[in-house]
Design a binder for these strands. Structure first.
Lengths: 345, 345
DNA sequence: GTGAAAGCGCTAACAC
DNA sequence: GTGTTAGCGCTTTCAC
C-alpha cells in the first residue's frame, strides 16, 4: 500500500519492475485513489476557488472563463461559486472552499464588507474590487473612466450624464470619480450641478435602461448629449432606452460603456467602450495567488492594470454646438489622435 | 471528542448542559470542523456539481444561476465547472467531482460522447442534451422549433432559412429537425432544396453572424425572407449581420431566436423567440438528482419540458407576397390566435 | 528499494 | 447521556 502511494505520486525511487507491476494492477482493478483522503492527508487539494457576485453578468462570465483557463494551465482545478450579490452566500462559499482545503481563493467581493475571516486571508486574492488589507488585482477604473470622458469632451460634449455603479461599492465608485473629477469643473462653469446628471444603481441592463430614461427625460436644466455608463450592460440598456423614446444613437445622444464584453461589438450601434484587460487580470491574479500560497507571509500588493478605449460607433459630436469652449472638431470623432490607450476596431 | 461530534451534528441526545458547554468552547476556540475529514468519513459532502460547456453563453449562465439557487434551497452547495466545450476538461471535472465525493452531478454534455464512466452514472443527471442511458431533463426542443416555424408560416413566410446548431450534438439537432419537418415539404413543393437554406455551427454570436450573411447573400435560388436561429445568441449575431448589409428587421427579414435570454428583450428590434423554462429545468433536475441520490437504483427517466413562443418585434409578414398558398394574414402578425404556448410581451 | 506502521480529524459503534 | 475506541484511505516516517 505504501508502495502504491509512491507509484501514484511518482515520488521516490521505486524499482522499474515493481512500478510496472503496480501500474498493471491499478489498470486491471480500475483503482482510483480517493481524492478526499489524499487531500485530507496532504492538507492540499490542488483546487482553487473563484467566487463572483453574478455569473450572469458577461464580464464575470468572461473573467471566470479566463481564470479557469489560467488555473488549468497551472495544474489546478478551479471550482466556481456564484454569490448572487448576497453576503451570506458569499460567506458560505468562502468557508466551504476553505473548509474543503482549497489551496487558494480568488474573490470578487459583492459588497464592501469582507466575507473573509482573518484566518484565511493569507490565501485569498481579491479581484476587481478592493477590500481593505487584502491583495488586489484590478483595472484602473478611474483612469479608464477618464479615457472615456476625455474622448467625449474631445468630441465636443460637455453635458455628459453618468450612469454610475452602486455607491455601496466604493472601489468601483472610482469609475464615477473619474467622471466627476473631469466634469464637475466644466458643469460648474456652466452653472450646472453635477448631481443632476448622475444616477446610481446596479451594473445590469435594467438599471442602464431606467437610468438613461431618467437622465434623458429629466428636468435637468439641459438634457445631456452623451451618457457615460459604468458597464456595458448598463450601456446596452441605455441603447434600448434611446430606441424606445425615439432618440438616435449617436446622432442625438452618444453612449459609452465599460468592460468591452463580446456583446459590445454586436449591438447596434456598436458600442464605444473602455476595455478591461480581462485575460491579464485572470493571469495576474493567478500568479499572485500562487505566490501567496508559496509564501503566505508576503506583503500585501495592489496591482492595477491599464484599460484602453475602444472606439466604435456609439459616439459622435453633439448635434448642435452651443458652447464653443472646446476647440473645433469639425464633425470627426477624435480621440486625442494616437493617444495611449485608444484604439479603433 | 465524540461528544463534540454529536453536538455539531445535532445528533442524538446530549444533555443541555453539556451541549451548552461544548458550544461555548467551540465559540471560544474558534473551532471549525475539517470538512474534508467529515466527508471523508461520511462518504458524503453535501456538495453537488454542475458542469456546463460554456459559462460565457447566457443560457448556461442563467441555468447555472437557477441551478445554484435550487441547490442552495435544498441545503446543498453547488460547485460549478466550465468545460469550455472540451471533452478532456469535462472529463476532468466529472472525475474531480466524483473523486471528491460530490453527492451528485448535473451535467450539460458538450459532445455526444459521454464523459461519465459507468460507475458514476448513478448519481448524474444530464440536462439540455440527451446522453444515451442517462437521466435527462430538457426542453422539448423539437416542439419549440415547430412553435417558431408555425408562427413564421402563419405570418406568410415560406422561404425560411435555418441557422442550426452543430450537428455533432444530435440531441440539439432536434431544433433543426422541427424546422426540417415542417419546411421540407413546403420547399419541395416550390422545387427548392432544404439544404440550401440551412447553415450548421456553434450556438454563439459569431456563427449567427456568419451564417446569416451566408444565407442572405447566398446563391440560393430565392433569398430567405425569414431566419430561424437555434439560439438567441445566433439570432443576435444575425441581427447584426442584417444591420451590416442594410437589411431592415423585420421589414426585410424576420428573425426568431431560441432560449429567451434576458438580452432578447433588449436588442433592437426586440427578439421574438422560443422560451425555455430555465427555472423549471433547474428545479426538475435537482429534484431528479435527489431521487437518484436517495435511490440510486431507480429506473432512468426522461423529462421533457414545454417551451413557449414569446412574440416581440423581430418578425413581420414578408414584404412582397409572391406565393398565396397560405391564407391571407393581411399584414398583422398572427400566432395561431391564442394557441397554447404563445404569448406576447 | 520496500514493507510495516503511525496517524491526519472525524464519525459511529461500543461500553458504561 | 457520555467517554472511549476503531477505522475511513491515504502519505510518510521508520526499519530493514
Amino acid at each position: 500500500v505504501g508502495t502504491v502511494s509512491r507509484v501514484i505520486n511518482l515520488n521516490t525511487q521505486v524499482s522499474d519492475d515493481l512500478r510496472a507491476r503496480v501500474e498493471a494492477a491499478i489498470a486491471e482493478l480500475g483503482y482510483r485513489p480517493n481524492a478526499l483522503a489524499r487531500s485530507f492527508r496532504q492538507q492540499r487539494s490542488n483546487t482553487l476557488g473563484l467566487v463572483v457576485p453574478d455569473i450572469t453578468a458577461p464580464f464575470f462570465a468572461e473573467l471566470a472563463k479566463y481564470t479557469e483557463a489560467a488555473a488549468l494551465a497551472r495544474g489546478y482545478t478551479l471550482l466556481l461559486g456564484n454569490s448572487m450579490y448576497s453576503t451570506e452566500v458569499e460567506r458560505l462559499y468562502v468557508s466551504t472552499l476553505a473548509d474543503r482545503r482549497a489551496d487558494g481563493l480568488i474573490l470578487v467581493p459583492s459588497t464592501a464588507g469582507s466575507p473573509v475571516p482573518q484566518s484565511e486571508q493569507a490565501r485569498v486574492v481579491v479581484v476587481d474590487r478592493e477590500l481593505p488589507g487584502m491583495d488586489l488585482v484590478a483595472s484602473d477604473h478611474r483612469g479608464g473612466a477618464k479615457l472615456a470622458i476625455e474622448y467625449l469632451l474631445g468630441l465636443g460634449h460637455t453635458l455628459i450624464g453618468c450612469v454610475a455603479g452602486p455607491q455601496e461599492l466604493p472601489p468601483l465608485y472610482q469609475r464615477y470619480d473619474g467622471y466627476a473629477e473631469l466634469l464637475r469643473p466644466i458643469l460648474a462653469g456652466m452653472g450646472l450641478e453635477l448631481e443632476a446628471y448622475v444616477r446610481e444603481g446596479p451594473f445590469d441592463y435594467d438599471f442602464g435602461y431606467t437610468a438613461a430614461l431618467s437622465l434623458l427625460q429629466s428636468s435637468a436644466p439641459r438634457r445631456p448629449t452623451a451618457l457615460f455608463c459604468s458597464s456595458d450592460q448598463q450601456a446596452i440598456g441605455a441603447l434600448r432606452a434611446c430606441a424606445d423614446v425615439g432618440l438616435d444613437v449617436p446622432a442625438d445622444v452618444s453612449i459609452t460603456g465599460f468592460d468591452d464584453i463580446p456583446l459590445a461589438r454586436l449591438v447596434s450601434p456598436r458600442l464605444t467602450t473602455v476595455r478591461q484587460p480581462i485575460e491579464s487580470i485572470a493571469d495576474a491574479s493567478l500568479d499572485r495567488l500562487r505566490q501567496r500560497i508559496e509564501s503566505p507571509g508576503g506583503r500585501r500588493r495592489r496591482l492595477l492594470l491599464d484599460t484602453e478605449l475602444v472606439v466604435r460607433a456609439s459616439c459622435a459630436p453633439p448635434r448642435r454646438r452651443r458652447a464653443a469652449k472646446l476647440s473645433s472638431t469639425n464633425g470627426k470623432p477624435q480621440g486625442g489622435s494616437g493617444a495611449a490607450g485608444v484604439r479603433t476596431r
